[in-house]
Amino acid sequence: TEDARKEAKKIIDNGGSPDEAAKFIKKYGLSEDQARELVKRAL
């Protein structure tokens, strides 16, 4: 979702790792793979 993508970008912009961002956005109901893909797109 757009919200999850924004959250991921915010985490990374604040110095978080892509892994942290992926873990965080899994709470939106995404699978591990979906979360990682979304983080990649957010970069």
Rank of each mutant, 00 (worst) to 15 (best):
D33L: 09
I11H: 03
K26D: 03
G15D: 02
R36H: 10
S31F: 00
A22L: 14
T1I: 15
S31C: 01
K9V: 07
D33C: 15
K27T: 05
K26S: 12
K10C: 14
R36E: 08
A4S: 02
G29Y: 00
D19G: 07
S31T: 13
E7V: 11
G29D: 04
K40A: 13
A4N: 03
E32F: 08
Q34S: 04
D3R: 14
R41M: 15
T1Q: 12
S31Q: 03
D13K: 11
A42V: 15
A4C: 15
S31W: 01
E20G: 00
E7Y: 06
E20V: 06
E20Q: 09
Q34H: 04
D33M: 08
D19W: 12
E7H: 08
I12R: 01
K6Y: 08
A22Q: 08
S17Q: 06
A21R: 04
R41L: 15
N14I: 07
Q34Y: 06
R36K: 12
V39P: 02
L30D: 01
E20F: 09
A8N: 02
R5Q: 13
Q34G: 02
D19R: 08
G29I: 02
G15S: 01
A21W: 15
E2I: 10
L30W: 04
N14V: 05
R41G: 12
N14K: 10
R5K: 13
P18R: 06
Y28D: 04
D33Y: 09
A4P: 09
I11M: 05
T1E: 13
E20A: 06
E32Y: 10
E32G: 01
K6T: 10
R5T: 10
A21G: 01
K6I: 12
T1D: 12
S31E: 04
K40F: 12
S17E: 03
D19N: 07
E2T: 09
Q34T: 06
D33K: 09
Y28S: 01
F24K: 09
A8M: 07
P18D: 06
D3F: 13
N14H: 09
K23V: 10
Y28N: 01
P18E: 11
E7Q: 10
R41V: 12
I11F: 11
Y28A: 02
E37Q: 08
A35R: 00
V39L: 09
K10F: 12
E32M: 12
E7M: 13
A4F: 08
E7I: 11
Q34R: 03
V39H: 02
D13L: 13
A4L: 14
Y28F: 13
E20D: 13
R41P: 06
